[in-house]
Amino acid sequence: MTAATATYREAVRSGIRRAIQQDTRVFLMGEDVGRYGGAFAVSAGLLEELGPERIRDTPLSESAFVGAGVGAALGGMRPIVEVMTVNFSLLAIDQLVNSAAALRHMSGGQLSVPLVVRMATGAGRQLAAQHSHSFENWYAHVPGLKVLAPGTVQDARDCVLAAVDDPDPVIVFEHQLLYNVQGTLDDDAPVADVWHAAVLETGTDLTLVTYGGSVPKALAAAAALRSEGINPEVVDLRCLRPLDWQTIIASVTRTHRMVVVDEGWKTGSLAGEIVAGVVDRGFYELDAAPERVCSVEVAVPYAKHLEDAVLPSVSRIVEAARKVMPRHG
């Protein structure tokens, strides 16, 4: 066993390195992933280690290099494409939604697109409206795509490896705030079942459903709630498409109350989808109207205090949890 402390960034890098070493078809490409080491330093050192054939810098055109990734995947390669942030991925959304997601269907099953697209998402580093949005729900809306959003260090490695192993296009969202988070990484452990949600903490009073960058906030909120006698269960979705309803419903069946924490905007959000799905599947398990903690519906501001005010916070999660609990709870 080689469990050791590592950052989320190192875990992603470890997953990429392993995927490339294990399979000659795998390579990484994107803006500045080579000489610069990646906009978030995820691929730092990999060019020297693995060579320019496997770590490829691309021109600054998301549509072009994501499209090249689709082509490479169609041609039998297993590309990992890094897009700097989800905001910029919108320039390549045609390649992802109209091509990658639909080709298996449109070719009557003859074509596979085993493409992995990794991108940073979310706010919290004062990168303003250009770099801070959360559009996970845009991709989780599309049949033909799978969407992963690791929220822990181990999952950061496992999501890369699971995505590379999948025969269909997979989008992996890495939250900007998580890259420096430290946790335990067992590099020899088998790849976890990241296609299903994980119950990170068990509880009896309510279910906190969350994913990605909101996972540490939900865990901190859970600790705060426990100190006031409320015992929450924390469900980390990990996979945003397809959603793991079985785990969500099983948890709500235990707790009968739910708060969804989702950094996306509330209107049309994944949080809304989760509430609707729970109402569809478990209406008579609900003992209180579910609450959603989402970002305020404005472009994410630059100023620190405004950015903090816009994003889901530990205190807003705690407040929402209190709201679903009975008065004397």
Binding site: H256, Y284, E285, L286, D287, A288, P326, R327
Partner: peptide, 22 residues
Amino acid sequence: SPLARARAAVLGVDLRRVEPTG
């Protein structure tokens, strides 16, 4: 709540006679 309604049906409890604390 939906759960309260479902449980009341199973237990045969008249919801109108229940003291609410929600």
